[in-house]
Design a protein around this nucleic acid. Structure first.
Length: 456
RNA sequence: GGGUAGGUGGCAGAGUGGCGAUGCGCGAGACUGCAGAUCUCGUUUAUUGGGGUUCGAUUCCCCACCUACCCUCCA
């Protein structure tokens, strides 16, 4: 298995530090608003990745932080005259809800920053003691000039960073690129006690404090959106490698390409943010996942409802084939086992190559074509093997919808009535039932074995 | 200005130093109570432009142009 590493800029053979154990950390969101489809892009991918690693037999410890204290949260609290921590709690719960809707269920632990304040302070203290940090009137800052390799992840030198700086220089800082480890309390802000007085953590320190707590100073994979490469992940490296004296902090840096909307970056200022909860009113979660996974995770994805409509057909083809084969009855025997395994191998080969989901999906499409062509001649062994493959695909990509059990039973009941009508050639009744179901987005099809249905 | 990743058929989107996947769309046919699904066949010069390396490049190198992202909070 190969994984592309942002730091070395190459695909590297994947070798966990300890046998089959994989320590995976992915930067979670800042919870000051509803999660949008850009978040969906990143977290759906890492969910698929973690699921695939588990499918391959790795024991994955998937850890994700939640930034529940920062400027944006405080600002919102100020505007709404609410406790900022109340706001972050609210949107953290919305985030969990959205993730559940998207069938993201592979994260072992979500770690909110405010739960780790003591760890954060402890790490800052050690940086301070080692001479990597200095105190000013408004906080404690990391001294980037002390860390020679600052910029190695984004492939920039400190001079370049200084030259390109667009921001006004904070007078308190020794170098423009120095960043806050601890921010001293301002009026009306949440705060915690620390050796430097009351205040709150800077943004970058929570991740290294949390990962050090769970994983230690070194671990396997660190992921996030590619907008986090600089400065966020750069700062994490500077913190962790300075504190521990060990490097590398992680062996594989993985970054997802960003999602654009009609070729424009999504953002508050563009007024084009689409929230997950909003899009899921119109688009099935599995279809959204299918769309997101049909581009490679490192490429940008361009979203529009037109695109969703365009791929809907190919997505349904997979779903329909699955439901057909579930219904298929057959005789003993197996004649296509080798073919079916061949498609599974194609799928795995694609995923093994830096999680090439578009190519993996292409293997699924070929598999579906094969099934559609040969289903009638398949024996029981073939069908079982096919269903197993579909189930495995769905446990990884999660692109095949399944309904609620109670609802399914009622639909089955209605369909049994339709079957009786058809047997008596009461086609006006059977067509009426089919039409009414379709109005409720349930499509019914007649095939030799009987009726199959699926959500449209 | 600096950094990073790219520019492939009507659309989306992979791969590869030597017949350019896959799906959608489009056209024709088969099957079918109807519908739907599915199958078969077809779909015009598709690899940004210019150099270079090579027997041969879409793939490697250089230049140009273009796009996205980062250099400020951001998945």
């Amino acid at each position: 298995m190969k994984i592309y590493d942002t730091l070395s800029r190459e695909k590297k053979e994947f070798l966990p530090m300890e046998g089959r154990r994989v320590k995976l950390f992915v930067c979670g969101p800042t919870v000051y608003d509803y999660s949008h489809i850009g978040h969906a892009r990143t977290y759906v991918f890492f969910d698929t990745m973690a699921s695939y690693l588990r499918y391959k037999g790795y024991h994955v410890f998937y850890l994700q932080n939640i930034t529940d204290i920062d400027d944006k949260i405080i600002n919102r609290g100020r505007n709404e005259k609410r406790d900022p921590l109340d706001i972050s709690l609210e949107f953290m719960l919305h985030y969990f809800n959205d993730m559940r809707s998207l069938r993201v269920d592979s994260v072992n632990i979500y770690a909110p920053a405010t739960y780790f304040i003591d760890r954060i302070i402890d790490q800052i203290q050690r940086l301070y003691d080692l001479g990597y940090a200095y105190e000013t009137d408004d906080g404690v800052y990391y001294d980037v000039s002390r860390f020679r390799e600052y910029g190695k992840l984004s492939h920039q030198s400190l001079d370049m960073i200084r030259a390109g700086a667009r921001v006004e220089v904070n007078e308190n800082k020794r170098h423009p690129a120095d960043f806050a480890l601890w921010k001293k309390r301002k009026e009306g802000e949440p705060f915690w006690e620390s050796p430097w007085g009351e205040g709150r953590p800077g943004w970058h320190i929570e991740d290294t404090a949390i990962t050090e707590y769970y994983f230690g100073p070194q671990y396997d994979i660190h992921g996030g959106g590619s907008d986090l490469i600089f400065p966020h992940h750069e700062c994490e490296i500077a913190q962790m490698e300075a504190v521990s004296g060990k490097k590398p902090m992680v062996n594989y840096w993985m970054h997802t390409g960003l999602l654009t909307i009609r070729q424009e970056r999504m953002g508050k200022s563009m007024g084009n943010v689409i929230n997950i909860r909003e899009i899921l009113k119109n688009v099935e979660p599995e279809l959204l996942r299918y769309f997101l996974l049909s581009s490679h995770y490192r490429s940008p994805v361009d979203f529009s409802y037109e695109r969703i409509d365009e791929i809907r057909q190919s997505w349904e083809k997979i779903v329909i084939a699955y439901r057909k084969i579930l219904k298929k009855e057959s005789k003993e025997g197996e004649s296509f086992i080798d073919d079916i395994r061949k498609y599974r191998r194609m799928f795995e080969d694609a995923m093994d190559d830096d999680f090439n989901t578009p190519e993996a999906i292409s293997a699924i499409q070929l598999f579906v074509n094969f099934i559609n062509k040969n289903m009638d001649g398949m024996g029981m062994g073939d069908i079982e093997e096919s269903i197993k493959f579909f189930n495995d695909i769905d446990s990884i990509l999660k692109i095949i919808p399944s309904g609620r059990v109670a609802e399914e039973r009622i639909i089955e009941l209605i369909l049994s009535i339709r079957k009786m009508a058809r047997e008596r050639k009461l086609y006006d009744i059977s067509d009426y039932i089919r039409e009414k179901l379709r109005e409720n987005n349930i499509n019914v099809e007649d095939m030799q074995e009987g009726q199959i249905w699926y959500r449209k």
